[in-house]
């Protein structure tokens, strides 16, 4: 029974380390797909994003999403790491690594996890602006809901 590796942390992560953890000592994996989400500066207007999360539920919800992905796409491994705190443009926010015997399951698994993570995992982004003002909370996007819903109607 494959279980997802889930972490919510302030510090940065290392993609290669996480890939190595999923693949070490096994010969049944034919595909590893990784996704990394980074903080944009939105055309130079942004100095940082502040990521707030619901401690406990964030991990629990990511775990539920990861378990669903493993079961649905028969993944051999799944790691998801989400950062919180103040994150500058160019820095990483989130990482997903999915491994499977073949590439389509690994692509689908990583994509599924990201689509649900964005719409169901309890994290919120607040903008810090170049002019020193606090900015506002980032609004949820309809496009993210549609990206999630395509997995439901399939």
């Amino acid at each position: 029974m494959t279980t997802p590796t889930i972490r919510v942390q302030r510090e940065n992560f290392d993609l290669q380390t996480e890939i190595d953890r999923l693949t070490a000592g096994r010969a049944d994996i034919g595909a590893v797909v990784t996704f990394t989400g980074l903080c944009r500066d939105e055309g130079g207007s942004l100095t940082a994003l502040e990521l707030e999360h619901y401690p406990g539920m964030a991990e629990a919800e990511m775990r539920r999403i990861g378990e669903e992905a493993i079961s649905r796409f028969s993944l051999l491994g799944l790691t998801a790491v989400h950062r919180y705190g103040k994150i500058a443009p160019g820095e990483t926010i989130v990482m997903v690594v999915a491994s499977a015997p073949h590439r389509q399951a690994a692509f689908d698994g990583a994509s599924f996890v990201m689509d649900f993570l964005k719409t169901a995992a309890p994290f919120w982004k607040k903008e810090h602006l170049q002019d020193g003002s606090a900015g506002g909370w980032v609004s949820a996007k309809d496009a993210d809901d549609r990206a999630r819903d395509k997995w439901i109607t399939r």
């Binding site: 926010i93 993570l117 994290f123 982004k125």
Partner: peptide, 9 residues
Amino acid sequence: GIFPPMTGG
């Protein structure tokens, strides 16, 4: 827990 729509990822 009570909160707005989520915007992580």
